[in-house]
Design a binder for these strands. Structure first.
Lengths: 190, 190
DNA sequence: CTTTAAAATGAATATATATTCGCTTATATT
DNA sequence: AATATAAGCGAATATATATTCATTTTAAAG
């Protein structure tokens, strides 16, 4: 017997991401995805029950990936500011390299495709970020404001930065990245 | 003879905004819009050539509105920081009160509906914001970084703040708003 | 009050898209 | 090597959606 091919799921995801980033969620059909992935339309239905399931699975996969990558190299022994900068850079790098995911996630959030269940699970993955900010507050390094507010501020600014970078084809060199981090840090610091 | 009804355009726009904010751009049909607006589907085509034209017109209208409102009460005589805060609050208030527009604009940006021409025109309306930041730099009050970067940071953070506020049904009281402004100002200040 | 031209209608049509299904092909297992 | 079983296919089908159009309603103009 033949087995399902893990690589094919990756192909399908990549195709969907590319297309959504290019045309928006509303402009992408199952036919488009299969063509871009280099497989038959029917094959999509071997891997996913339908469009809804495909989109939800991709959403969940993107979210997990991005959280995973964020804390790479994190060690509570390291002083807060460099540890925070490391995470901030991890996220920024990830988003720049996976721009399509940024757009995809944004487009999905307000769409009939994503189920509440999927949304819930994505939210739960944010816990480590809350914990990080609380550490910074305990050490009196960052403002004693609502942690959700602080995170919102940082993530919103970064997302917009990533989007603008792609729209305007500005290259985000090391100097600009450091400036952006300084804006972020100056905003947070107590 | 009968005349076209300006109020009807507003109804159509409001209906489209409500629906897109609720279901996302991909989940909204011309039938949905006409039903929500309380008119027949055919009537939509009296006012707009088709879905594309409707979406582009709404996008342009939203953008114009929001820029218009931002500078309400601006006067170059007023010192920079309070003038800036006034504009920042104008934008925040507008976005909170017109949440649907925030979602609609975001969903539109990466979609096949919006034409390059529409996108261009929207961009041109940003000129006054660039000028404002340059004033702040001349007066040595804010960082001498790329103005685009500074604006990106502010707007991104604010958009996310507005979205999070709605998702989590947190009420953004005066104290939280001031905290958010302080984050923003501390990020910018020289 | 009548005329007239355009708005308004919504069922009918055209089009686009998701999904299914009978068939073929590939590959694990024996 | 033979067999079995699921993947892979893509044309056909079902469904959803945009758009048109013959008809009715509305209100401005004479």
């Amino acid at each position: 017997m033949k087995r399902k091919d893990d690589k094919k799921v990756t192909q399908i995801f990549q195709a969907a991401l590319r297309l959504v980033a290019e045309k928006g969620l509303s402009g992408v059909t199952m036919g488009d995805i299969s063509r871009e992935a280099g497989i038959a339309t029917g094959t999509l239905y071997v891997y996913f029950k339908g469009k809804d399931e495909l989109i939800n699975a991709l959403f969940a996969a993107c979210r997990e990936n991005s959280v995973q990558v964020s804390f790479k190299g994190y060690n509570p022994q390291i002083p807060f500011k460099p540890a925070f900068k490391n995470i901030w850079l991890n996220i920024l790098r990830y988003k720049l390299q996976h721009f399509e995911e940024v757009i995809f996630m944004e487009q999905c959030y307000h769409s009939p495709f994503i189920t509440n269940d999927t949304r819930e699970k994505a939210l739960q993955l944010s816990a480590p970020f809350y914990a990080l900010m609380e550490r910074g507050q305990k050490e009196q390094l960052i403002k004693q404001a609502d942690v959700g507010l602080l995170l919102t501020f940082i993530i919103g600014a970064m997302n917009e930065l990533v989007k603008q970078t792609h729209y305007s084809s500005i290259t985000l060199n090391r100097s600009k990245i450091n400036t952006a981090f300084d804006l972020c840090w100056d905003a947070l610091k107590a």
